[in-house]
């Protein structure tokens, strides 16, 4: 555990909590892509199956359980409790275009051809593209509320800090998880355009992030 890894995990947690509280308090999931949230729930589910097979640390176990609970709670809010506010018209990204290639790739490029490893690899690849329905939705509607933008900022920070973590681990331990690093870099690239918009519009503007 290093400071980059720990702050990355905390930023990830903050992002998830920001989103959950936003929906909970406003009793609305307007502007939120339910598809991205389902994909994230699927990411956590397929990655954390090792909860049952290997114990890493109390921290590891607690964080996994918290991520899972929050991910499913958020999906529950969007599709059940506040489903009337769900904007399915704008959430029109075709997720099968992500799921099929990601599933195919996880069978081809993995560390071991075992069910758990393939599912772990699937979760890593899927996470790198799971935010696309949300970014697509923002592009389509042309704007994001500042709180949605804060959510995306913290998710992006989490990614950037994980990159720092991997550089640090490679430097200090010689640890290099090729699949995670390559997918992580791809994932972080998706946030770059958003970072630019965030700093030029949300921070200098009136709150809402509008696209040109």
């Amino acid at each position: 555990m290093n400071i980059f890894r720990l702050s990355g995990d905390v930023c990830h947690l903050i992002a998830i909590i920001i989103l959950f509280l936003k929906i909970w308090r406003s009793k609305s999931c307007a502007g939120i892509s339910g598809k991205s949230q389902v994909l994230f729930a699927l990411v956590f589910t397929t990655r954390y199956l090792d909860l049952f097979t290997s114990y890493i640390s109390a921290y590891n176990t607690v964080m996994k359980v918290v991520y899972l609970l929050l991910a499913y709670s958020t999906v529950g809010l969007i599709f059940f409790r506040f489903r009337n506010s769900y904007d399915s018209e704008s959430d029109s990204f075709r997720v099968e275009f992500l799921l099929v290639p990601v599933a195919g790739l996880s069978f081809l490029e993995n560390y071991a051809f075992t069910p758990l490893e393939i599912l772990w690899t699937f979760s890593i690849y899927l996470e790198s593209v799971a935010i696309l329905p949300q970014l697509f939705m923002i592009t389509k509607t042309g704007e994001a509320e500042s709180i949605t933008a804060h959510y995306l900022l913290f998710l992006g920070l989490y990614r950037a800090l994980y990159l720092a973590n991997w550089l640090w681990r490679f430097h200090t331990e010689g640890f290099y998880d090729q699949i995670a690093v390559v997918s992580g870099v791809v994932q972080t690239i998706f946030y770059c355009d958003f970072f630019y918009l965030y700093f030029t519009r949300v921070l200098r503007g009136s709150g809402k992030m509008s696209l040109p």
Partner: peptide
């Protein structure tokens, strides 16, 4: 450590 890696990250 390329190859089988213990997945200790989240």
């Amino acid at each position: 450590v390329i190859g089988r890696i213990r997945h200790d990250e989240l």
